[in-house]
Write a protein that binds this DNA or RNA. Structure first.
Lengths: 254, 254
DNA sequence: AACTGTGAAGATCTTCACAGCA
DNA sequence: TGCTGTGAAGATCTTCACAGTT
């Protein structure tokens, strides 16, 4: 399956469902916004609306973390921010390397959501010697030759692959050999990794194809169905699913 | 929920489960690769390995499309490519507009996976007047003022938002007003859209946070658990989940 | 009265395991 | 014999609905 390996019986480490883990960042984002507006407390209803989920789901999700709310009142914003951050492991520093500094790699390097969430771009790496030394987002690009050394020196455990598909597996192998155990893959390839290594993939092409599928259905329904059951608005999150038994491949631009 | 609207009772338009739809692009990619190597047929086992899923799941997925395989033999590659393409609506032309031509927008514009899958970048749009006329990926950037006109003139029904979070909702509203009914959102915001409009979101920050969660667990387990149940390799697809009742928010860089 | 926390029901998705066809 | 197609079991996720707490 997946990348050619076995998967854990259930990713639900310590009982938190994978689907819940995938939503914690959403709650965190909404809570952070409230925190910046100095809102002291929120009800599950309000927070759910801000995060784009329904309140029952949110309460159930939080129940896996513990009883952090107050009946009749709601949740303390600051406290929840802390609890969720801790749960996600964001209270510690996560040095990250980005490999492949094309437009996408540059976009990622410039992404502000990093630092604020405990992530730190330890290095930008590209195979093109001409890129070496060139600063992107204020960080000088380093050559692929330095990969292993950089990983070790910085204690990097998370790597981002933004290279063309052809180079992805090779880069992946080197990241893993160097000690990286979590990979975010933007290349349109199914990566093969050994046990113990997590891979998440993001693929623009796939997202568009899924949209096209539904778009096509809409066009069809117009002619058919009178009006009884019309398609309703839908918002899907490209992060949720990724099942606990991992079995889905990766993808995307470069 | 989601963007503040209701969702269809079940996105399973015409009976195809949402989870299956999310995997069709993966199969298509694997099949295309086989096709290019002139491989005539594949077994569910082989194709599943190439796509990174297990074979039972793949066979079940295909069973929703119809009986396209031959017992004792496998699936005809070309035939399957056609059937899946048709099912996804990729046999038709999908003009797409990309709004927000920063690094990410440029990366998307340059993404080759577009054209080969029926998608055509009809226009690149940016709010910065200085960008107007500047060619990106061979296509001249146009100013936001032209948005509605472009959508109408090209019959665009799919829009990609790659703007900063602050501009996303406004851009979204204009896209919808112009007639777009499917949106791929890269901005870290929960978009509010009327019924009938689909939104999918991709958020780098969220993906990293999910990785961090598991990474943290790994570190913990090392000290604990002897070796009985060690975490195994996992590959998650950031596209799968997006449930049929849509309820997940969006996110990402700009 | 307001709102959380959660058992239980329902829906969806995955995996098994084997009948059935080439 | 080999491999697909699928009913049925199992696992996970979502939603309901209300008891419990402030």
């Amino acid at each position: 399956m997946a990348t050619g390996r076995t998967h854990r019986p259930a990713t639900r480490s310590r009982g938190i469902p994978e689907a819940t883990v995938a939503r914690l960042p959403l709650y965190l984002r909404a809570l952070t916004a409230l925190s910046e507006r100095s809102v002291p407390t929120v009800s599950s209803e309000e927070l759910a609306a801000a995060a784009g989920v329904n309140s029952a789901k949110l309460r159930k999700d939080f129940s896996y973390l513990g009883s952090y709310g107050t009946r009749g009142v709601g949740y303390d914003v600051e406290y929840l921010v802390y609890q969720i951050s801790r749960e996600l492991g964001l209270t510690q520093d996560w040095p990250v390397v980005i490999v492949g500094i094309g437009n996408l790699g540059a976009a990622l390097a410039n992404y502000g959501g990093f630092a604020s969430r405990g992530f730190r771009v330890a290095a930008l790496i590209d195979a093109d010697p001409a890129m070496a030394g060139k600063p992107v987002a204020g960080i000088p690009v380093q050559h692929t030759d330095e990969l292993e050394k950089i990983i070790e020196d910085n204690g990097v455990s998370i790597g981002v692959i933004a290279t063309p598909a052809g180079a992805a597996q090779q880069v992946c192998d080197r990241l893993v050999a160097g000690g990286v155990t979590s990979i975010l893959n933007f290349a349109p390839t199914v990566l093969s990794v050994p046990d113990g290594v997590d891979v998440r993939k993001v693929d623009l092409s796939i997202e568009l194809q899924i949209l096209a599928f539904h778009e096509q259905r809409k066009a069809g329904e117009e002619t058919a169905a009178g009006d009884g059951a019309r398609p309703a608005a839908t918002t899907r999150d490209a992060s949720a699913d990724q099942g606990p038994d991992g079995d889905v491949p990766a993808v995307m631009p470069a």
